[in-house]
């Protein structure tokens, strides 16, 4: 039996009197495509923040490839291959596309500590950065600063940056939300062509995307796991329907 790519054990997070994450034990098998769904306020974002080290859990632990990473900071987890994209674009407004990608590649390879060699002088880094730009259709805007890109391009760059860190486990937080149709197709293509040695957690509202992409689904409601199973099992689960229908009525 191989170890799980990512695992949480009895993860709990309380803010004051509110329990945002309630005893969540989550497993992501190696190479799997796992979707995390749930209505608004189900605690998906808190859960992601606990996984990535933005928040520290009240109790419980996070394991990456069988190794406890609870004590690591955000960047330490990234270095070990746990990489995320952000729901709202979190980019470097004044850095160009090329600089952004080169940055991610050079940090991944541990060159960021070097205050001497010009960032652009490592051929390997620049080559990988422009290759990534090609893949994500950003070649034409390579020299433009991030804040000048269109929303769709910013989304693409957001995901490209995550790719540049060469993830073992990739957390995609609503990667296609708000993206125009043309760019959306690009994103879906790229996601589909991800190598199987990358395990993926997808947080998504768009059920079409969830069912086409994921082979496993975990449903989070009020901070705890409602159910988990294959796409078929979950889609036929009456409790899941109830949760989503309930939410639909509210909206």
């Amino acid at each position: 039996m191989s170890t799980n790519a990512l695992e949480t054990r009895q993860l709990v997070k309380r803010f004051g009197g509110i329990t945002a994450t309630d005893n969540v034990s989550f497993t992501l098998e190696q190479g799997s495509r796992h979707a995390l769904i749930g209505p608004n306020g189900a605690g998906k974002t808190t859960f992601i923040n606990l996984l990535t080290g933005v928040l520290n859990p009240t109790s419980g632990c996070v394991l990456l490839n069988g190794e406890d990473i609870s004590g690591l900071g955000i960047h330490g987890r990234v270095r070990r291959g746990l990489v995320r994209t952000f729901q709202i674009n979190q980019l470097f407004p004044t850095l160009t596309v090329l600089e952004t990608l080169a940055l991610a590649v050079s940090e991944r390879d541990g060159f960021g500590r070097n205050p001497w060699r010009p960032a652009g002088s490592r051929h390997g880094i620049m080559k990988q950065a422009s290759a990534l730009a090609d893949t994500f259709l950003l070649t034409d805007v390579l020299r433009n600063i991030a804040s000048s890109l269109s929303y769709g391009q910013q989304r693409l760059l957001e995901i490209a940056v995550a790719f540049a860190s060469r993830p073992k486990v990739l957390l995609l937080d609503e990667p296609a939300a708000g993206v125009p149709e043309h760019d959306r197709a690009t994103i879906l293509d790229v996601l589909a062509s991800l190598p199987r040695d990358v395990s993926v957690v997808l947080i998504e509202h768009d059920m079409d995307l969830v069912f086409s992409f994921a082979d496993m689904i975990t449903v989070l409601v009020s901070g705890s796991v409602l159910t988990r199973g294959s796409a078929d099992q979950v889609s036929s689960d009456p409790r899941v329907k109830a949760v989503y229908l309930g939410e639909a009525e509210h909206e």
């Binding site: 933005v54 270095r79 470097f92 407004p93 004044t94 080169a102 940090e107």
Partner: peptide, 24 residues
């Protein structure tokens, strides 16, 4: 102009994102 300098500008721009690309 180094990789280090590039990472500083990234931190200046967005500290959270900087740590999420692996910058200490």
């Amino acid at each position: 102009g180094s990789s280090f300098g590039l990472s500083l500008r990234a931190i200046r721009d967005n500290q959270l994102r900087a740590s999420a690309v692996g910058i200490p």
